[in-house]
Design a protein around this nucleic acid. Structure first.
Lengths: 353, 353
DNA sequence: CGCTACCATGTTTACGCTGACATCGCGAAA
DNA sequence: TTTCGCGATGTCAGCGTAAACATGGTAGCG
């Protein structure tokens, strides 16, 4: 009379139904069930129907563990990412998810907390042990560190990282974006362009800064000192307070939209109008950027394409057998300049060209 | 002489090393290897050492498929979420990831594109087939639809959804947040508070609107017509343009920060100052909210806690055997009012109380 | 009419791991 | 000394699936 082992509950869910259960009910062998489950052609239509209805009755679902065990394939991709709360990473993740789903893969995601080598290493270990067929590493500045070994036996694709190109990667053309931003401001007649960079350990940030530097050089413009933020509006604000104090600052290129937002607020508080006194360009094109005050001129990244390409490359690697390292490919995705209201021609009097 | 079958490459990676390989190298049985791999106590230290070094030499990693097959446990949690690019979802996901990792679980994430029943159903099917021990569904307004069947055999926890409480859930106390926002504005002397709601199919949005309504009623304030946005700054802007045209609007509570941002821009363009002419409160407390112009008064959600609680509840369900449905628990997380510069006392002349 | 092909289906096996049980050896208690 | 017990290790089976191979029946062809 105790409450366990109540045979009354038809749902004596001791164990999910297996192929064998379906086979018994349908009066066929389990192999035939397997054939039906995998949509093989060589099954009598009538038999197939019988098996399918038995599946429905029992609520059969294939056991993916057993499946993976025999096939040696999991149909799971691992994703290692820092900080999904960062907009770009989240967007890329979403795109990867879409693409993976279309290809019949699901996603095992690990968000790495600390930007330390061990943390990434451990995430990779966890994923490979958790059985993935391939690995995508997002925002991989950490890969700079020489000790990191990603060669865990599964194919790897790196999104927006990998300066040493040790892995196939998908890469937003940071340089093109930063160049476009800088040129846009120079073309508006500003004598030079200041830059608020992202953190120094970010490969993307470094490349944006380098391209900014190169664009100024190429235009023969003086190169103002570079300040480093940490991607947050807070640090943009702090740096903005300093820049606002310098009257010779009339154009600033921020390494992302949040920095730009903080920057604008600081300029505003200091009484310097955007864009009349100072022009500001961001990077990313957050959905909100068009609604900042003023609407932000920025560089739009195509995260969707990055995600799609990551999955495509990874699947290609997985499908061609483990041999043929195959000219490791680097796919480049180019961002666009979106001009809004935070940039204007250089003020006549002050530092105009 | 063809290039396949090159025995020279020592890395004839035909098949990853198994317990048996390690056992052979270490001169023990595979069972002993298993014991070492699982950190069992009953192994001679010297033997353990020998096995460990054999593992290192071969680069052994347990095959999780085989493991899952025998154990019937995958140590994977499934997460179904709409739009990871939405800040709240991303934050919740990050928190879930952290909590899961601490508990030794990894995360199989599916981002559902369409908010249709079938899409969710399919995501759930994919996940359960992909072998998860439990399921977390984020932002589950869709669960309103009567046809949706989440009872797929694995425990489910719903984050911020489930009006009918059919599942254990973790729930931000939307009502408390919305009430706090409304009361804050009323306390500042505004005669009433307008509301820009989120989409009608969002359970969270509906509860915020209901609480706003109730708070006005309770205070004896008139209830202005409710406008629905879609969480984006764009729709906040559109609605803002309409509200800006009405001089009797002096206080607006927006259902999230993006709506508030668009709203502020519209008010600004219409020449109505925030907060001098109109006070605005948001919801979420995006990291950028403090840097909007003006810094936004808002309701801060504790996504971290929501994620943590989801995992805790799910693991509790998983661990207690599949019997004992156990008083399905609803955990509530309370958000806080964060007062910044977008709210001020009601303007004297106009609609002051 | 007899042989071959081929198709639907069944049987067997291996995948890698761990739980249950068996074995062996050694020290402690009687 | 004998016996018991316990700890270290080995043996074996089974998890659910799909590939490989086996079987048996039928249609087509000479």
């Amino acid at each position: 009379m105790d409450q366990s082992e109540t045979p009354g509950t038809a749902r004596g869910r001791s164990r999910p139904p297996s192929q064998a259960d379906v086979a018994a009910l349908a009066g066929v062998s389990s192999q035939t069930v397997s054939r039906v489950a995998n949509n093989r052609s060589n099954v009598e239509p009538e038999t197939r129907e019988r098996v399918l209805s038995a599946m429905r009755i029992l609520g059969y679902q294939r056991n993916s563990a057993a499946r993976a065990l025999t096939l040696g394939r999991f149909h799971v991709l691992g994703v290692v990412t820092f900080d999904v709360a960062a907009h770009g990473n989240a967007r890329t993740l979403a795109a990867i998810s879409r693409a993976a789903q279309r290809a019949g893969y699901s996603l095992n995601v690990v968000c790495v907390e600390d930007r330390t080598e061990e943390a990434v290493q451990q995430a990779v270990r966890q994923l490979t042990e958790q059985a993935v067929d391939g690995l995508i590493v997002i925002e991989a500045q950490i890969l700079d560190r020489p000790g990191l070994d990603l060669h865990s036996g599964v194919p790897v694709v790196v999104a927006d990282g990998d300066p040493e190109r040790r892995f196939p990667s998908v890469d937003t053309d940071q340089a093109a974006g930063a160049t476009a931003a800088t040129r846009h401001l120079l073309d508006l007649g500003h004598r030079t362009v200041w830059h608020v960079g992202g953190p120094q350990d970010s490969y993307a940030a470094r490349r944006r800064a380098a391209a900014w530097h190169a664009a100024l050089k190429a235009a023969g413009a003086p190169v103002p000192p570079l300040r480093y933020g940490d991607w947050t509006a807070a640090s943009g604000y702090e740096i903005g307070l300093e820049l606002a104090a310098r009257p010779d600052v009339t154009a600033v290129f921020a390494a992302n939209d949040q920095l730009a937002l903080g920057l604008v607020r600081a300029l505003h508080e200091a009484g310097r109008r955007v864009p009349q006194d100072v022009s500001v360009v961001g990077f990313d094109d957050l959905p909100e950027a068009a609604y900042y005050l003023p609407p932000l001129t920025t560089i739009r990244q195509d995260f969707e394409e990055v995600g799609r390409q990551c999955v495509a490359q990874l699947l290609a690697q997985i499908d061609r057998a483990s041999d043929t390292p195959a000219a490791e490919r680097i796919v480049t995705v180019t961002p666009d300049l979106v001009v809004r209201a935070s940039t204007a021609r250089a003020p006549e009097g002050s530092a105009g060209r």
